[in-house]
Design a protein around this nucleic acid. Structure first.
Lengths: 195, 195
DNA sequence: TGCTTAAACTAATGATATTAGTTATATTAA
DNA sequence: TTAATATAACTAATATCATTAGTTTAAGCA
């Protein structure tokens, strides 16, 4: 009936993304993806180099989307507001694309240059945001690690439903970011006092 | 040759734990576990109710170990030092038992009462530690969520090798915890000022 | 109109989890 | 000491995956 359905890598990625975001990364197998696309699973190999490659593609797509989102909000803000906006964007991304976020985390191969660069782009934007606070060398690195820990931890626990209490999570998030901002400023003052 | 090898649920769990901690939770399959124990994989069903049950058992064991560790350090400390000690214990556990930590995260079934209680015990210890700061109602909940986010985030990113820079991670961790402690105190003062 | 390319296909293999039913040993009771 | 029972191991079989090899056929171009 139909070789040439009009399927391409992009359509395939799109479907995989929707499945991952809706039902978790685990739920996207070559079998389930093929079924959804109404083709047989071996046909997927015409577009993607197996399941690991598909997951890598999802991770890459997630990183690119994150970077674009961060760049967009950072272009319009500065100072504390930039860090707040970036944090909100981080949270929004994780909520809108839990499957892609999951794919990004399972960063498997540290040798993969393209993937590492995409990750570097995202981290670079966080670094840039933190740098506006004028921290000295090592302190800046610690601060970047700190905000990353806090954002990732919150987002992950929230997604798995780990926060039991019925108390507004957005408030917790804002408070956490504000506390961190206050902490950064304290660190800066301490560093300046030591000089 | 050998029905009655002397295998029991505990030995099985022990082996699975070692495999998970050494090579990741993914690496422990019924096939690989059976191979390691020198039995055929269907025989595992005499001790465990399939792979999901095995993973659940690992998660449970992880939660119990965490709770015991926290209880032990909290018995000997108080105030800021208690929060520091608990944080160190959290980090130590995640480093020593990455496989169990992973199992704990994949908390699958929210209906599982036993698992939830075990999780509640761990979170309860964190709550108790935070409560010594005398925060008011909601604020205490936010603070607990905050420290949990921060600890989990740090531990997770560290494990997956996400912190690129060659700068001592223990220092980052201490700094992060200290910053949070300072933040809690600020929150308390703000709350008191509002009253 | 015929050729080439590639996107779909079928068939087959190997790994996994799981179920059903069998065997044989360790423990317990007579 | 011996017989009965319980159970930990086993083999055989099935279903679901991912993956490879080889085939078919439609789309696009000469």
């Amino acid at each position: 009936m139909s070789p040439r359905i009009g399927l391409d890598r992009a359509a395939l990625l799109q479907a995989a993304t929707e499945m991952a975001d809706a039902h978790g990364l685990e739920s996207v197998t070559l079998a389930s993806l093929a079924q959804r696309l109404k083709i047989r699973s071996p046909s997927l190999y015409n577009h993607v180099n197996g399941l690991p490659d598909l997951r890598r593609e999802l991770a890459l797509s997630g990183l690119v989307k994150m970077a674009e989102s961060f760049e967009s909000v950072l272009a319009e803000t500065s100072g504390d507001e930039a860090l707040r906006a970036m944090s909100r964007a981080y949270l929004s991304f994780a909520r809108q694309h839990p499957g892609l976020y999951e794919a990004v985390q399972r960063a498997p191969d540290p040798e993969d240059r393209v993937l590492r660069d995409a990750g570097g782009r995202v981290v670079g934007l966080i670094v840039r945001t933190i740098q506006t606070y004028g921290l000295q060398g090592d302190t800046a690195i610690h601060a970047v690690r700190g905000i990353r820990s806090l954002l990732h931890g919150f987002v992950t626990i929230e997604r798995q439903g780990g926060f039991g209490m019925p108390l507004d999570l957005d408030i917790t998030f804002r408070l956490l970011v504000e506390t961190f901002i206050a902490g950064i400023k304290t660190l800066r003052e301490q560093a300046e006092a030591e000089r």
